[in-house]
Computed example of a mutant assay.
Amino acid sequence: MLVRRRGELRCPDGECPLRTAVIVPLTDGNRTVGTLQVYRGDGALSPQGVVEGLAGILSLHLELAELNRRQRLAVDAKLDALRAQINPHFLFNTLNTIASKVHTDTEETRQLLVRLSDFFRYVVRQEGHFAEFGQEYFFVRTYVSLEQARYGDRVRVRYDIDPQVLTAHVPVLIIQPLVENAIKHGLSGKVEGGTVTLKARVDPLTRTTSIRVADNGVGIPADLLKRISDGERREGDGQGLSNIAGRLASLYGERYRLDIQSTENGGTVVDLQIPLG
């Protein structure tokens, strides 16, 4: 829009020095969200092409900002969905375990209640999308202690953690679901139980953090493993690994690696590699 006469500016100041204006819309996609207005007091018009070019640059920045905002909302939604998934799924079984011990071992009951409180306090109060590995490690150990109270000697967990990794930043609620999958889907269906191994390393040269969760459980059926690898999902498949892959893609784009190797009755190995943060 070009305004060549001062009277068309509708300036409320009777002695307004402005005489011309070039007004160009600012857009976010197909939606107009504002205008860029360039006024002059010498009677000349600012070059329309220059103003339109500036408006185009500003509109591009607005679109990128909106895209980033939507991406953050998508990541927030995935994290909230994961929190909602943990609460009812885990709470019922743990409370049943605690209730079974109330009359036989009051001290263990008290300790389990404290650990359960620590578990949910971490889930609810953790802010942001990243935390130090040491915090997530404590969270995993708290979860494992509650599951071992339920399964007893059928669930054994081995930790192989490089001390250097403790201060590295990792996505919150990423490691615990991997360990939960190993216990829930790998070991719980095996009469004699088994062992889960959590291994973590930092590579300063490649600036990556590597995390491995391995179990010697029942493994993943070949058709389900293929759907997981292809990013497909069917009703009844579960959402754990799909949610993890979706969150990692939202947080890192292509700068991560998630590999799953499994054979039926031969166990499962999940390798995760993320940028060192």
Results as ranks from 00 to 15, higher is better:
190 K>Y: 13
260 I>Q: 00
239 Q>G: 08
222 A>T: 15
174 I>V: 10
259 D>A: 09
232 E>N: 06
200 A>M: 03
227 R>T: 14
240 G>F: 11
161 I>S: 04
235 E>G: 12
229 S>H: 14
245 A>Y: 01
255 R>D: 05
181 N>R: 15
135 Q>D: 03
158 R>I: 08
242 S>Q: 08
268 T>A: 09
266 G>M: 07
159 Y>L: 07
213 V>N: 03
135 Q>M: 01
178 L>I: 14
141 R>I: 02
228 I>C: 01
161 I>R: 02
240 G>H: 14
215 D>H: 12
208 T>D: 04
166 L>I: 02
245 A>G: 01
236 G>S: 06
251 L>H: 05
238 G>D: 12
206 T>Q: 07
184 K>D: 08
266 G>R: 13
137 Y>R: 03
188 S>T: 15
235 E>T: 15
209 T>L: 03
137 Y>N: 02
141 R>A: 04
198 L>G: 08
221 P>W: 10
150 R>E: 05
163 P>G: 06
204 P>S: 02
248 L>F: 03
240 G>R: 12
263 T>M: 04
226 K>N: 12
145 S>D: 11
198 L>P: 08
261 Q>C: 08
209 T>D: 00
242 S>E: 05
169 H>L: 04
238 G>H: 13
226 K>M: 11
244 I>R: 06
203 D>K: 03
147 E>W: 14
197 T>A: 06
272 L>S: 01
254 E>L: 00
138 F>L: 02
235 E>P: 09
142 T>H: 06
236 G>R: 08
143 Y>E: 09
249 A>R: 06
137 Y>F: 11
263 T>H: 07
258 L>H: 14
224 L>D: 09
156 R>V: 14
165 V>T: 02
195 T>H: 13
254 E>N: 04
170 V>L: 03
183 I>W: 11
148 Q>I: 14
243 N>C: 10
197 T>F: 09
226 K>S: 11
221 P>R: 07
153 D>L: 10
234 R>T: 09
262 S>D: 13
140 V>R: 02
219 G>T: 12
165 V>R: 00
